[in-house]
Amino acid sequence: MNKVPNNRAWWLVLPVFILVAFSALIPLMTVVNYSVQDIFGPGNAYYVGTEWFREVLADERLRESLLRQFLFSGAVLAIQIPLGIGVALMMPKSGIKASLCLILLAIPLLIPWNVVGTIWQIFGRGDIGLFGWGLNALGLDYNYTGDTVDAWLTVLLMDVWHWTPLVALLCYSGLRAIPEAFYQAAEIDRASKWAVFRYIQLPRLKSVLVIAVLLRFMDSFMIYTEPFVLTGGGPGSSTTFLSQTLTTMAIGQFDIGRAAAFSLIYFLIVLLVSWVFFTAITHLDKEK
């Protein structure tokens, strides 16, 4: 759509600007202030320059948690995107069945995040949970509170359970936007199922997939509540992801300066990634 240049439109945006600036800019400025000082209490702070940044960048624990975070986000994307596409392809095209599928798929998305953690905390336990009990009954030695690998797999499985429906819903709406004529043409050409997917469905899914990857990356990158409830970051620190490391540092140990410096680095990573994806989305929009 061709837009009209009009700077008075700023007045319409002003309320949003003020509201978000209040909740975003003031805290951001505060974090920057904290990051260059050593704070002992109100009015008792010393300027330390870039000391915190140096320490954070050299901190082994933070590097590990950053690495763990990238591994987790990578695994989340590698599983959920193909699985989500698969589910979307299996969904009924229309009618009451389709509505039912949509609603059932949406349910995990609407559960408060701490309850998601609770569900899996119960479900995975060897004594009272069906999942843990079932695995143990099959002769597998499964214990998510004690074993690192099990804890990882449980957190990953929980995230797959929680968020794959989102990818599926997105892909489903992308598939519905393909005109029926495309499929008819493919049928006349006797195209194989794979060819239909590769040359008709996948290209049309491009824009929703970018959004799906963006949302999944971002949300898995800031995951906090679910693993916190499920494993508490353990065993050891094997499932402690970035947000949890940060929260423990700021609130648990009251190490404000270091936490602030870490926050800013965290924020810069997020900013870079979301900018790349945003640019990709706007460019795809333009192509249309």
Binding site: L28, T30, Y34, M222, T247
Partner: peptide
């Protein structure tokens, strides 16, 4: 605006 949707809440916890 969008970047605020992406910002981890943990970053802003204390200032909030």
């Amino acid at each position: 605006l969008l970047s605020n949707r992406m910002a981890p809440p943990a970053v802003f916890l204390l200032p909030f």
